[in-house]
């Protein structure tokens, strides 16, 4: 197991590895988020997905998210791994693990992490439907960045 807290990988992600990375004697709570490939999106059937990343920058942005979380929720520890390449239905695309002494922070920081991933981490998803394929744009369903660039300073949109 690689001990890096923030990783982009092309093999399956092992949940327990992420939990092991954040476990500490002072933690009473660990939350994990597991993002999997869903078969149906708004009535359309996905056959498989392809994820592409600008890897060095994606890792850097994951670290940025980790730093943001440290400053918003001190005494949490975060690990994030995102997978790229071809993923089939139910395959895991991303896992986020957060530990903290108390549960509230572990939930909040975890949800914050996934929202930020969808804003600033250069990873793209190509949907392969039964009848075609598309690169998916911004999942936040904004058509452009109102401030001219993704919200990179940790403000909540």
């Amino acid at each position: 197991m690689n001990n890096e807290l923030f990783q982009i990988v092309d093999e399956p992600i092992i949940l327990q590895d992420l939990v092991d990375k954040v476990e500490r004697r002072e933690a009473g709570a660990v939350t994990t988020f597991i993002g999997t490939v869903r078969e149906w999106t708004k009535g359309k059937r996905t056959v498989y997905l392809e994820y592409q990343a600008y890897k060095p920058m994606a890792i850097k942005m994951l670290k940025t998210i980790g730093d943001e979380i440290q400053s918003k929720w001190p005494n949490t520890k975060v690990a994030i791994t995102h997978r790229v390449g071809r993923l089939d239905i139910s395959d895991i695309a991303v896992i986020i693990a957060v530990s903290s002494p108390h549960r509230k922070q572990a939930y909040e920081a975890n949800e914050y992490a996934i929202e930020r991933i969808k804003q600033i981490v250069p990873i793209w998803k190509k949907e392969h439907w039964e009848d075609g394929e598309t690169w998916i744009g911004d999942q936040l369903e904004k058509v452009s960045y109102p401030k001219g660039k993704p919200n990179i300073k940790g403000e909540v949109l």
């Binding site: 993002g35 994820y51 990343a53 600008y54 920058m57 994606a58 995102h82 695309a93 991303v94 996934i114 991933i117 969808k118 804003q119 600033i120 981490v121 250069p122 990873i123 793209w124 998803k125 690169w135 998916i136 744009g137 911004d138 999942q139 904004k142 993704p150």
Partner: peptide, 10 residues
Amino acid sequence: VAFIPPVSGG
């Protein structure tokens, strides 16, 4: 210089 379309990870 990287050209980065709206991201869709997660």
